[in-house]
Design a binder for these strands. Structure first.
Length: 760
RNA sequence: GGGUUCGUAGCUCAGUUGGUUAGAGCGCAACAUCGACAUUGUUGAGGUCACAGGUUCAAAUCCUGUCGGACCCACCA
């Protein structure tokens, strides 16, 4: 296998053919071997990368940890499944693709049409997904690609839709009017994670409200005010709480109640907040606590719908309102302030918090169970301190908006009898009208208009079950990507009735970046508990971010991204894997740069060269001697002058313990240290002494070496596979296996002292 | 505002129930070596483990506070 004439190791020479060898022999499949019935399984559902771009170092880091666990358990003779997949990544892909497709063409996705857009987007995505898969394989990820899933696979989509239907029937999802982040350019609701904040110079207007003065940056929403609020601790306004004040303003005369709420910052402006539940997230929540009316005056295009401002863009309306207020003498003063505004991550449009009819999921009850899972010990997060973050997020969870007004994703399986539309009436009341508008009659209404029934169904029903109307209009909205990806652990296994589900679920470990603990992990627990009554995994391992040399987060805009494939080209996969893992504490960010990978490349070369020493030493042995070594490795340890049997036992015990405790960084570090300094610098050097040149010592040497190769295999799979093949070819080890992947991982035999130098 | 985390050799970082002389890699200095490896070996210099208190027989490790950096959550009317 290894061409030991080479004085240094060239990964390029071997890695590709090793991948080919693993894949063509189906070695990554849990069916590669026939296991006895009650064999322990070890399953990781791999986090699906977004299929719209090449893998970045974060993916590669995750894949390395996942693969270490997979290979370790496979060598423990567990039945191992690492299940790969790719995610369609909703809005992210839609916008990436829109940019690609429409680059310079001047057309919008609407010009192309939904059907064509989705078709082209699918082609684009599948092409990229294929590329991503090839990259995963280059990393050595021993995932079962015969089971690979894509989040828009028919079977996956169907299960996701079934979940929605089940939840609808139980009242866990509902059509509701709540405040959401709205992007007027993308024309969709957005999750907080799809938005960001930027600082902007703006003005703070002090405006008279009767005898009071209120400071606001958004005077154009005055018409939607439904209360004034003060902090209950604020002595200045204590006497006003519970009273109603008469306000004369641009919208005529109205009465506003004064309420108390802790959300009000007494140090901002005058300490009085105008409450606009229809156009501010915070105000909406205050409104919920105090039962305030919700008035909408801005539409989906960021244009006002009110009175003489109707049709004006928000910015223009602000100017108009301010000049009208000035005319009425209601402006007290205007201050320049810096202030943060929320923008759409993709289009950089200012987010408008709007009332909107959307599909929401009730989350409180599910969150409670997800909290219990931790408390009962059904779920463990590594490192443990992250459990606090997890719990706090779940304790403060709010209903989840799961609908998006996008094209790239899974359609929400709903039909409206007679269709639906929304309008804002003259009172600022946003209404959704389903059917003819005269809802709730219950009679067999007119066929043309429909009765307004909401029908949940994957396939289009022929007629309305309530009124027999045939004019059923399909919901155009799609699911938030996370609604599907949080169901990934069981959808990928083929659903709760499948054989794979019964074999591999609940899975063992979820390994992912700590940045998606909330959006993904916590919700996966909720959805898993809902759909399967089980926590989908026992352990969660979180890794940190990969930073550039200066410790900065990699980002496209900064152009400081490190390409993992380029690193592999230059230094080899094993070196990159060690760089990402060795000596890195769980959850800790790490820097990646050339010199570091180079150092590990040197180590890999050391491994190669030490093997060269051994192979050259054994080259001239007779067949009988080789047979002796093969058959008797280890047995003669006690008779040899020189051996490191005890040290090896210690190492084995510690490495096993490290891995079991999710301390992969320590395990790799210990192995590398031991190999370099104990095995090479000390033991091998001693072996050069002619008095140690006897058959027993050689047997012991090969045995020790092979033990180390096995121990290192989960971390550096390529060179260890090559070494295994070479040992086998040269007749130095006895084995039935065709790959080191299925050899037994060394287990500790003794409980003796721990040698110095190893980190426990 | 709430929370988390980090501060250890010139640099990058390990150091898991507190326990001999605090470690590795890179870098640096000297030496060695063309029969495993110059992608090497040996030896060495370099640390008041951010700072100040406290607990303890014993603290890089636990507690409190201070300073400095990073991140997360909420909010930004």
């Amino acid at each position: 296998m290894l061409d030991i004439k080479d004085v240094s190791y060239n990964p390029k020479k071997y890695e590709e053919s090793i991948i080919e060898f693993w894949l063509s022999n189906n070695l990554f499949s849990p069916e590669y071997r026939k296991y006895p019935k009650n064999t322990r399984t070890f399953t990781i559902i791999l986090p699906p990368p977004n299929a719209n771009a090449p893998l970045h170092t974060g993916h590669v880091t995750g894949n390395t940890y996942q693969d270490i666990m997979g290979r370790y358990h496979r060598m423990l003779q567990d039945k191992v499944l690492l299940l790969p997949g790719k995610d369609h990544a909703g809005i992210q892909t839609e916008i990436v693709f829109e940019k690609e497709l429409l680059k310079g063409s001047g057309r919008s996705k609407r010009d192309i049409g939904r059907e064509e857009f989705v078709k082209q987007c699918l082609e684009f995505t599948l092409k990229n997904a294929k590329n991503a898969t090839a990259q995963e394989q280059r990393i050595g990820l021993s995932a079962d690609y015969s089971r690979e899933k894509f989040s828009l696979d028919e079977n996956i989509t169907r299960q996701v839709q079934e979940t929605f239907i089940a939840m609808f029937k139980e009242g866990l999802v509902y059509r509701g009017k709540r405040i959401i982040n709205w992007c007027s350019k993308c024309q969709t609701a957005l999750a907080d994670i799809d938005t960001e904040y930027i600082e902007e110079d703006t003005k703070l207007y002090y405006i008279k409200y009767g005898d009071l003065v209120v400071a606001t940056t958004r005077p154009e929403t005055i018409m939607a005010d439904t209360a004034l609020a003060v902090n209950p601790k604020d002595k200045r306004y204590k006497h006003l709480i519970g009273k109603t004040i008469l306000v004369k303003s641009i919208d005529g005369e109205k009465e506003l109640p004064v309420i108390e709420d802790f959300a009000v910052d007494e140090n901002f402006g005058t300490g009085i907040l105008k409450v606009t539940p229809g156009h501010s997230k915070e105000d909406f929540e205050i409104g919920e606590r105090h039962n305030l009316p919700r008035i909408s005056i801005i539409d989906n295009y960021s244009k006002l719908t009110y009175g003489r401002y109707k049709g004006m863009k928000v910015k223009d309306a602000r100017e108009a309102v301010v000049s009208d207020l000035e005319a009425l003498g209601l402006i007290v003063k205007i201050e320049d302030i810096k202030h943060k505004i929320q923008i759409c991550e993709r289009s950089h449009t200012v987010i408008e918090p709007l009332l909107s009819y959307q599909w929401f999921m009730k989350t409180r009850g599910l969150a409670k169970e997800a909290i219990l899972a931790i408390e009962k010990g059904d779920l463990h997060i590594h490192p443990q301190r992250q459990e606090k973050n997890y719990l706090r997020w779940l304790e403060n969870i709010e209903d989840w908006c799961i609908s998006r007004q996008l094209w790239w994703g899974q359609r929400i399986p709903v039909y409206y009898c007679g269709g639906k539309r929304t309008e804002i009436d003259e009172n600022g009341d946003l209404k959704e009208i389903i059917g003819s508008g005269s809802t709730g009659s219950g009679s067999t209404g007119s066929r043309s208009n429909g009765c307004g029934e909401i029908i949940v169904s994957i396939d289009k029903p022929k007629k309305c079950p309530k009124c027999n109307n045939t004019n059923l209009v399909e919901e155009e909205d799609i699911f938030d990507t996370w609604f599907s990806s949080t169901q990934w652990p069981y959808t990928t296994l083929g659903g709760t009735e499948s054989k794979d589900f019964k074999t591999f679920y609940p899975t063992n470990v979820l390994e992912t970046g700590r940045d998606i603990l909330f959006f993904w992990v916590a919700r996966m627990v909720m959805m898993g508990l809902y759909r399967t009554s089980k926590v989908p995994f026992f352990d969660v391992y979180l890794h940190g971010l990969v930073l550039d040399k200066d410790g900065l987060k990699q980002s496209k805009s900064k152009g400081n991204g490190v390409s993992p494939m380029e690193m592999i080209d230059r230094f080899g996969t094993d070196s990159l894997r060690l760089s990402l893992v060795s000596g890195v504490a769980p959850d800790q960010d790490m820097k990646l740069y050339d010199e570091k990978v180079k150092g590990f490349r040197n180590f890999i070369n050391k491994v190669y060269n030490s093997s060269r020493f051994i192979f050259l030493k054994m080259e001239n042995l007779s067949e009988d001697d080789k047979k002796f070594i093969r058959e008797n490795t280890g047995v003669y340890a006690a008779k040899t002058n020189i051996h490191i049997t005890q040290e090896i036992q210690d190492l084995i015990r510690i490495v096993n313990r490290n891995i079991e405790n999710f301390e992969f960084g320590l395990a790799a570090f210990n192995l590398q240290n031991f190999y370099h300094h104990t095995f090479c610098d000390s033991y091998l050097e001693d072996m050069k002494n002619p008095k140690n040149d006897n058959i027993e010592s050689n047997a012991e040497l090969v045995h020790t070496f092979y033990t180390l190769v096995k121990l290192m295999h989960p971390f550096i799979p390529f060179i260890t596979e090559a070494l295994f093949q070479t040992l086998k070819d040269k007749g130095l080890i006895k084995t039935e296996e065709i790959s080191i992947m299925y050899e037994e991982f060394p287990k500790d035999q003794s409980q003796k002292t721990i040698i110095k130098n190893l980190k426990v």
